[in-house]
Design a protein around this nucleic acid. Structure first.
Lengths: 194, 194
DNA sequence: AACATCGGAGAACGTTCGTTCTCTCAACTA
DNA sequence: TAGTTGAGAGAACGAACGTTCTCCGATGTT
């Protein structure tokens, strides 16, 4: 194994799988090594410590998550449909067989009290999601307040689906989101207002 | 220390404080012993293992939490006010200086993948909360669907307040809850319909 | 062919932690 | 008073884990 980048990638792939499915403290560096096929020596050349690996795991998860969501949502033409698509995407996510909730909420519960870096990562992730929703809401010409409410519904769905393993919760969240959306004014015509 | 019950109480009080504020895996039995003043020997007479202590900690937390919520909510006269009071109580909870989110969500993130008992406790707690909301909603004469949506808002508020440390999120959740409540029919007269 | 370099496998080290054991002493009983 | 019981303090034990080190073989260079 000569390729440093390929090794990094294999380690991070293994970290994604292991940390997400079992939790961070439940996964030892030996497990990462076995799952990635990268020797301990090399592993510590690539990441100076487990904590560094954890932080990169979180950052990578954040960017992959954001991209997956945006790719799905932006296939919709109108702002209203895009907002609803957020919840459809959640449903798709919840249906993944190894869905176990939001890695950031989980990490925060596990290490947030003891690791400011992890707490910070969780905040960044949630802030990015909220900002994304806020942009969609603004594009639909509705008040920013709506974005806060949609974010609450989404967060609630994420943890409820994790604990009960019931993806349909995303549909309930979607219904509630649509109700709230129609409660708030929005431009009178669905399209073209400027 | 002759009194077995008093010792149990001190241990569980220490466990509440420590497990909630730092997380379960971050707290060793030595810390519980120091905080409670109960010797290790006695500790293991009272609880056969750390896992047993953790499970009792969760059960006790569940019953305390449910009682505190119900006591607050039931001071309100009408079903509608009671539903809103749930979110007011959340705000009160979020304002506690050592608020760190829902102990069950945190424990689930930490141990849910590795301990079916912990996952089960989290489900029970959430189910109890959902059922409580469902009773309030039913008493207001509104469709059960509303309870699901209110639960999502509450869960979202709980985790968002934990990660950002912003108790005001409870007010946003309350506002959204009121909007959803007024969206759903309910009896035409606020009182007396049979 | 001799040598240097590098990486892999996994042993080793030091620490932490859950759990048990030992030692000691105080309180109660005959 | 002698002996028994039980509790506390903390040492001890065994496992797990993060991190480092050793050994060895493969590869590439001259």
């Amino acid at each position: 194994m000569v390729d440093r980048e390929a090794a990094r990638e294999r380690v991070l792939d293994a970290a994604q799988e292991l940390f997400y499915s079992r939790g961070i403290q439940a996964v030892g560096m030996d497990a990462v090594r076995n799952a990635s096929g990268v020797s301990l020596k090399r592993l510590y050349q690539l990441f100076p410590s487990k904590e560094a690996l954890v932080l990169e795991f979180l950052q990578q998860r954040d960017s992959r998550w954001q991209r997956a969501l945006a790719d799905y949502v932006e296939a919709q033409p109108t702002p209203e449909e895009r907002i609803a698509a957020v919840f459809d995407w959640l449903h798709k996510w919840f249906c993944e067989p190894d869905y176990r909730g939001c890695a950031f909420i989980n990490s925060f519960g596990e290490l947030g009290a003891v690791s400011p870096e992890v707490a910070e990562q969780a905040q960044q992730h949630k802030r990015a999601f909220h900002d994304y929703l806020a942009r969609l809401v603004k594009a639909s010409g509705r008040p920013a307040k709506l974005a806060d409410q949609l974010a609450l519904l989404a967060e609630g769905a994420i943890t409820t689906a994790a604990i009960f393993g019931t993806p349909e919760i995303a549909h309930q969240a979607r219904d509630a989101a649509c109700l709230l959306m129609h409660t708030h004014p929005g431009p009178d015509l669905p399209q073209l207002r400027r």
